[in-house]
Design a protein around this nucleic acid. Sequence first.
DNA 1: CTTGCTTACGAGACTCGTAATAATT
DNA 2: AATTATTACGAGTCTCGTAAGCAAG
Lengths: 313, 313
Amino acid sequence: MNFQQLRYVRETVRRGLNLTEAANALHTSQPGVSKQIRELEAELGFDIFVRHGKRIASLTEPGKAVLGIIERVLQEAENLKRAAQDFSERDTGSLTVATTHTQARYSLPRVVGEFKRRYPKVHLSLLQGNPPQVAEMALSGVADIGIATESLEQHPGLLALPGYTWNHCVVVPPKHPLLKAGALTLEALARYPIITYDTAFAGRSNIDAAFSARNVAVDVVLSAIDSDVIKTYVELGLGVGIIAAMAFDARRDSHLRVLDCSHLFRSNTTRVAVKRGGLLRGYAYEFIEMFAPALSRKLIERALAGEGELYEL
Amino acid sequence: MNFQQLRYVRETVRRGLNLTEAANALHTSQPGVSKQIRELEAELGFDIFVRHGKRIASLTEPGKAVLGIIERVLQEAENLKRAAQDFSERDTGSLTVATTHTQARYSLPRVVGEFKRRYPKVHLSLLQGNPPQVAEMALSGVADIGIATESLEQHPGLLALPGYTWNHCVVVPPKHPLLKAGALTLEALARYPIITYDTAFAGRSNIDAAFSARNVAVDVVLSAIDSDVIKTYVELGLGVGIIAAMAFDARRDSHLRVLDCSHLFRSNTTRVAVKRGGLLRGYAYEFIEMFAPALSRKLIERALAGEGELYEL
DNA sequence: CTTGCTTACGAGACTCGTAATAATT
DNA sequence: AATTATTACGAGTCTCGTAAGCAAG
């Protein structure tokens, strides 16, 4: 039994039980993968994969069971390498952050700038996706850190800590009737076509929840991932926008007017997720702390250790 | 990086930083161990060991840090092999139980008998030691299960579940004055020389605690690991014995008389300990359940998963 | 008939043991 | 002087890639 064999098995499963793809992904030959897996199976004493003739069809029951252990072995081995790097080259390496458009565009630039200044030799990548994808990337190890407002807290394999809290705001063109009305209500808002985020994005769930709780029908004429897209269509007069408050910039968005709506929708918590059982480089902790100063290294490490506890602030 | 290198490092640390001993323990050559460790260090990018010329003096700081991870990798690798065996040969293998004399002699025979009947092909070993040794054996993996009344719950690396509760009893020769007195008191007991268990054995701590709480001075003329030894000397008239109640057998111990003392000393809880992060064979769960029917496989697995919780019954 | 797994085989790398060397106690 | 780690070297094994074969969809 060796690491290579375990990697081959894991990759084969990840690639949908396709040896050829697994071999390509690992930059090696297909026969090599086949042989090593068979040797591992021989050593373990049972087959991991169900084969129909020369096709791999599925995982055997024992295969499913050992797969989890295989993943833990490889995870710990990766932790070891990462810890080693953290000692030998403290300030170099790479950091991959998976996040949504809104975070990447409005809350991360400050953090990224500061991080790059402090760790010029760390290669930083931002991966963008919808919240479930962000969760997936954090879970699979493609990303070291996931940042999003939705989905993250639902994965048991992730530790999702609260980063910061924010509210939505309503944006309208200048001279819009809503600007003259008094305090904004859901009913008043619902009289106009709405432009806001896609389902499962940037607190959209809280928006829907508020309307349906009051039984108010809304007409979402357009939904987008992207605050900038929403603002553009609001400027064109297609409707009233509901966006994250931090996505409104009074100077830049001079063609729009903003209305407070923090009393209408529940506030949103953007969370930082890391994989349970994973190991973070020193600078990864720093990145998180720059993003949310309350999330100190100590707190995160404690949260990773005592798995069960809740860390709401 | 391979498993062998990690094993070499772990063994070297376990053997007190002595390569020669590590090599012997692993049935391989000393130069091989030396070379592999140096290669691992080269790959990791830092030294694990501090060397003074040609002697290994200590662990480096990074070395200490990665040692923990190395142990986890190897633990998971071992779990993998064990899980594999559990699938390929469900009813064969070995089970090592570390325990104290009292348990081995008075509470385990029934369990061992039943276990052997149900799993004739499992090689069962009983290792005997004092409670700290039992804990150590469970922790190091020498034993799969540790059973003792003391020490086990103090190791954070162990999960120590309550197995059963028992009381001490007082044994005296026939016609001893204590038999005529009324209800037994600590003061009455302390008038006679006492023969009981060694420190840190079979609830001795509860005995000492009871006397010192009432400020009663006791004269323990003889202490032993072994209930049979205690009974022998009581028969010889050397003093009054305090032993575990289950160690008294009315038929066999016809030369002795027993006195209840459950009101004098706190009752004792014998615990079953397994290593956190370890994996138990199916029959190991069965062994534990035969010993303490309340400790079902499900309960143990849940307790191993939710690390923080308390599982007092 | 294309895709995809397995078998066969050979080159190169790696592991491990023995013997010799060197440094520490 | 004895113990203990490192270096040198060679035999044997293992890994991996190419090429060929063969089963399934």
